[in-house]
Design a protein around this nucleic acid. Structure first.
Length: 676
DNA sequence: TAGTGTTAGATTTTT
DNA sequence: TCTAACACTA
């Protein structure tokens, strides 16, 4: 308990009634959760396996686990459940598989697979295909699932023709998932909720198992996640929810920040503790943040303060164009690096949209400043990795159509779109999955005999491979499999340069190593079954595992969303312009408030210095447009901001001066060092 | 199946 | 204006 402030201590000790901790940015909320778990085990004698902590990302779960590992010896923390919502749902489904109408080895489809399934369903239904955009349909189905709406209720509630069509697609989609022994991400929450709601035996069983539940980032929960929380804690309500309404920035994808206030309604004995002392930032940063967020009508007042230090006014760099903006940020960072010996990893550049990263990258590269871009397409989404995953999934679940479709002709086996279309039709008629349909009489009758033969051969080969993979370690068997299909040759065939093929092959080797590494249970140290391995992989972005060297000294480029939860000594908030932040599509009240909170999140990432940048003109969809500074800058006291470069000439001069100064510093450094 | 033409869309994104 | 996904043609 040492080193905790009185509010933090109260939050840790409070275990008898449900508790909401409203934890401001940088107020040590993870610390509170960690200490509370330690307290529950050490002081309250709660068995570790009765404690469940839930986060939103794998990264957050991993970090929490690591911090607990520093506080408790292995034998005292064994059995502790720290996971994401989705992993928790998966665990529950795995223990109750039959109740869900699933067979062991069921697959969890990712967003891409689910979209492909939707596309193939639409391809079979001309009327719906003309009316619907696959992405839009996917979004709507996901939204319905997050709101716990069944297909039939969605059909009843449908407001127009389009929604009605999506509801009907939703029905087919779920039926097809069942035929494939598969679930999508949203099902991992929705289905457990349905079970716990409808089956009192299962409910009581799980409520006994969950002795204490802690939920992080509570403001990001959606309806189904909140329902899961309620059902798991039951009437005893041994629950700690930690969140910050000021950092609610995910309403656009279904988060319900009002779940924070719903807690008081649903748990009358709820106690609330506010954490307002910030341990991260200097006071000028917090003052700006407080002033900005005071304009948010939708959230509870909370005033951050800190004892870190006074801090300086924030610079606002007014630049001519986006190129100019990127150049000035880059020069400024270089300057900081050489003049103040600021390590590059202490600097982050934040922006609203990913496209803004491109120019920044160019300029950083020009000045040879190392940078690390978070976001973009992950390693996990690479085609070769997804192909290998698909083979592995088919080993675990022979009815995984999404996986089969992905690799049936990769590498080439002469099984083209026409065959697959006919096969899909047969599968739909027989209400089954593709592999079974292929072995039916109608397939024999309706498919080209040569291709049909080819198809059966391939399925037999898969069966044989399945026997092999169950007999030895998965990674090892996968190596053999990739050799048998000569995937390396396929890659060489696909790529123009042998270098590109080489790189993709290396990615696969990395993936195989990763497969070996995660194939062991963190808790028991035992090897996972193939099914467990595949399911674990589906929920872990490989990107997170492949954390590049922590001490890699590079400037971080992040979207404002991706920056939540992180902190940096020096932060550049770029594109502080109307229509960019707040984004042009977010002028309506609720969305505008969320944009403001996004800006708040950006500001509160800064520990020591904060620099806003904006341009005077920006090219938008090919047109040059004059730009107005973001209204959020006006919501911060003028004394806290130091504008630079408002006049054109002055800006150019200043810019040159800064660049010249930076260059001469570099030269001096190089002279001193005697080598680059 | 590769190569070319056409068209929409251009915020944020985890699991 | 630029890109990427798609549909169409050779």
């Amino acid at each position: 308990m040492h080193g905790l402030n009185p509010q933090q201590q109260a939050a840790v000790r409070h275990v008898d009634t449900p508790l909401l901790v409203l934890a401001g940015a940088g107020s040590g909320k993870t610390r509170v959760i960690v200490e509370k778990i330690v307290h529950l085990i050490e002081a309250k004698g709660t068995p570790a396996n009765g404690i469940w902590a839930v986060t939103f990302t794998n990264k957050a779960a991993r970090e929490m686990g690591e911090r607990i590992a520093q506080r408790l010896p292995a034998d005292r923390r064994r059995g502790l459940n720290i996971s994401t919502f989705h992993t928790l749902g998966l665990k529950l489904i795995r223990r109750e598989t039959a109740a869900f109408g699933l067979r062991p080895g069921f697959t969890v489809l990712d967003a891409e697979d689910s979209l492909n399934l939707i596309k193939s369903l639409l391809a079979q239904n001309e009327a719906a295909a003309g009316l619907l955009e696959p992405k839009e349909a996917q979004r709507q189905i996901s939204a319905w699932k997050n709101d716990l709406l069944t297909p039939s209720r969605a059909a009843t509630a449908a407001a127009d023709e389009v929604e009605a069509a999506i509801a009907s697609l939703y029905h087919d989609y779920d039926r097809q998932l069942t035929a494939c022994n598969a679930l999508d991400f949203d099902d991992l929450i929705k289905r457990p909720v349905e079970l716990l709601r409808d089956d009192s035996d299962a409910r009581e069983r799980w409520q006994r198992r969950v002795r204490y539940l802690l939920v992080d980032e509570y403001q990001d929960t959606n309806t189904s996640q909140y329902e899961l929380v309620r059902l798991l804690v039951g009437p005893l309500a041994r629950l700690t929810a930690v969140g910050d309404d000021h950092q609610s920035i995910y309403a656009w994808r279904g988060a319900r920040p009002e779940n924070l206030s719903h807690l008081a309604r649903d748990f009358p004995r709820l106690a609330t503790i506010k954490l307002e002392q910030n341990y991260r930032s200097v006071n000028t940063v917090l003052t700006a943040a407080n002033q900005l967020i005071a304009n948010d009508p939708t959230t509870q007042p909370k005033r951050l303060w800190s004892a870190v230090g006074p801090g300086e006014a924030h610079r606002v760099l007014v630049c001519d164009t986006a190129d100019d903006e990127a150049e000035r940020i880059a020069t400024d960072i270089l300057h900081r690096h050489f003049k103040d010996q600021t390590p590059y990893r202490h600097v982050a550049i934040l922006f609203r949209g990913n496209h803004q990263a491109r120019l920044l990258e160019q300029q950083l590269r020009k000045l040879s400043i190392p940078y690390q871009l978070t976001g973009g397409q992950s390693f996990f989404e690479r085609a070769e990795v997804k192909d290998a995953m698909a083979y592995l999934r088919l080993m675990s679940n022979p009815s995984d159509d999404a996986a089969l479709l992905r690799i049936i002709n990769t590498p080439r086996r002469g099984i083209g779109p026409t065959t697959l279309e006919r096969l899909g039709l047969i599968a739909r008629e027989r209400r089954t999955h593709l592999a079974e349909a292929a072995r039916s009489i109608s397939a024999e009758q309706r498919l080209d005999p040569r291709v049909h033969h080819q198809l059966l051969q391939f399925l037999d080969w898969l069966d044989a491979a399945r026997l092999d993979i169950n007999a030895r370690p998965a990674a090892e068997a996968m190596r053999t499999l990739l050799e048998e299909i000569d995937y390396a040759a396929y890659l060489r065939d696909q790529e123009n340069s042998s270098k590109a093929a080489e790189r993709r092959w290396t990615n696969l080797q990395d993936w195989l190593e990763w497969t070996e590494r995660i194939g062991i249970d963190n808790d028991s140290g035992e090897a996972l079954s193939l099914t467990e391995l595949v399911q674990k992989m589906s929920l872990l972005g490989i990107l997170e595992q492949k954390t590049r060297d922590q001490d890699d000294d590079a400037v971080r480029l992040l979207t404002l969303h991706a920056a939540k939860g992180l902190e940096f000594p020096h932060v550049y908030l770029s594109g502080m312009e109307e229509d960019l932040l707040p984004h042009q599509d977010c002028q309506e009240d609720d969305r505008l408030a969320e944009e403001r909170r996004l800006c708040f999140v950006g500001i509160t990432r800064a520990q020591k210095s904060l620099t806003f940048t904006l341009t005077k003109r920006r090219r938008r969809y090919g047109q040059w447009r004059d730009v107005r500074p973001s209204r959020f800058l006006e919501e911060i006291d003028a004394d806290l901001l130091r504008w630079e470069g408002i006049g054109v000439q002055k800006s150019e001069e200043e810019h040159r001066a800064t660049a010249a100064e930076a260059m001469s510093t570099i030269r001096a450094m190089l002279d001193n060092a005697g080598k680059p």
